[in-house]
C-alpha cells in the first residue's frame, strides 16, 4: 500500500517523521484529509487546530499544532508549526490552567492567541475545550 512520507516540524526541532497512511488537518477553509496520491496543496492551518497523523500501523498520532502550514507535495506531507505538541506529551492540567488564565483577559491579542493554543492542546489530548 502506498504511504505518505510525513514530516512534522516545529520551529525549535523536528518533532516526528515517518510513514503514514493518512493525515487529517483543519485549514482555515475547512477540515481536510490527505491520502497518498493527493494533489499538491498548500494550506494554512486553522488557529487552535489539531492534526491527526494515521501511521502505517493504524495508530493515530494526534498533534496540537499552532500557527502552522500544511504542504502536500509528491514527496509527502510537511506540517510546519510555530508550536506543536504530540498529544501524549500534553499536560492537560497545565493546558486548562493556561486556558483559564488566557480567557480572563480577552481583549489582549496575546491572550487570545494563548487561549487558542491551550484549546488546541486540550482538543489534541481528547478533552473538551
Amino acid at each position: 500500500m502506498a504511504t505518505l512520507q510525513v514530516e512534522l516540524v516545529a520551529v525549535e526541532k523536528m518533532l516526528w517523521s515517518g510513514e503514514a497512511s493518512m493525515v487529517i488537518a483543519r485549514t482555515t477553509e475547512g477540515e481536510l484529509g490527505v491520502m497518498p496520491g493527493h494533489s499538491p496543496l498548500l494550506g494554512e492551518l486553522a488557529p487552535g487546530g489539531v492534526v491527526t497523523i494515521r501511521t502505517e500501523s493504524g495508530e493515530d498520532l494526534v498533534v496540537a499544532a499552532h500557527g502552522g502550514f500544511l504542504s502536500v507535495t509528491e514527496r509527502g506531507v510537511s506540517i510546519l508549526a510555530e508550536t506543536a505538541e504530540i498529544s501524549t506529551d500534553i499536560d492537560v492540567e497545565r493546558a486548562r490552567e493556561a486556558l483559564r488564565r488566557a480567557e480572563q483577559d480577552s481583549d489582549d491579542p496575546e491572550a487570545v492567541a494563548a487561549a487558542r493554543r491551550a484549546q488546541s492542546r486540550l482538543r489534541a489530548a481528547g478533552q473538551d475545550a
Binding site: 494533489s39 499538491p40 496543496l41 494554512e44 509528491e74
Partner: peptide, 13 residues
C-alpha cells in the same frame, strides 16, 4: 510544473 491547490488563496497565504 505541478499546480498547487491553495487554502486559502495564494495571496492570503
Amino acid at each position: 510544473t505541478p499546480s498547487y491547490e491553495f487554502e486559502p488563496s495564494p495571496e492570503q497565504l
